[in-house]
């Protein structure tokens, strides 16, 4: 699944293009520049990777080789509700893998990917520090402990309901 750049992202990318032009073009600058791009865009779209490769005059394959090696770089935009599934030792033992699979199946994306509407993204993370609640998943900053397949279902229902309430409120505010 390939995401298209939003107009805002295109603008940021253009801005980045101008700003890295002044940067050193030594190979050793590869990671710092990738970090800078990700800091502004939140991820590394193909257009940005190409831009970095051109600036440093290294093959595209080499930039991807480095960027895919490090977990800190992502190739899909973060969703509005980023879902992080804990894969720490305790969560692993309590079936974190199954929870991850549940989210993946429900959203029809793989870990590291984002839904087409950019609402949800799934990531696996190492220990989030509340092992007593294992298995744990985070939606945004909210911790959900003792996860179970049925709770995954429940989470989405809750988010849906919340969205509808907000929608209603917005309409009400608009009509007043």
């Amino acid at each position: 699944m390939e995401e298209k750049l939003t107009p805002e992202e295109s603008a940021i990318l253009e801005e980045l293009r101008q700003s890295i032009r002044g940067d050193d073009s030594q190979r050793s600058r590869l990671i710092p520049i990738l970090q800078k791009v990700q800091e502004r865009l939140g991820y590394l779209p193909p257009e940005a990777v190409k831009m970095v490769a051109d600036h440093l005059a290294v093959p595209l394959s080499e930039v991807y080789s480095v960027a895919t090696f490090y977990n800190q770089f992502r190739f899909h935009p973060p969703g509005k509700y980023p879902i992080k599934v804990c894969m720490g030792t305790a969560c692993h033992v309590r079936g974190g893998e199954i929870i991850l699979e549940n989210f993946e199946r429900k959203l029809e994306i793989k870990e590291g990917e984002t839904t087409e509407d950019r609402e949800f993204s799934i990531e696996r993370v190492a220990c989030v520090g509340c092992c007593a609640l294992a298995p744990v998943a985070l939606v945004g900053e909210t911790v959900h402990g003792h996860m179970a397949p049925s709770k995954v279902e429940g989470l989405f229902t809750r988010i849906q309901v919340q969205k509808e309430i907000e929608e209603k409120r917005r309409k009400k505010d608009g009509s007043e």
Binding site: S61, Y64, S65, F69
Partner: peptide
Amino acid sequence: ALSGRGFDTVIRCFA
């Protein structure tokens, strides 16, 4: 180029 790491390492084409 090599892509990813650990068990996920694969040779991939980035043309």
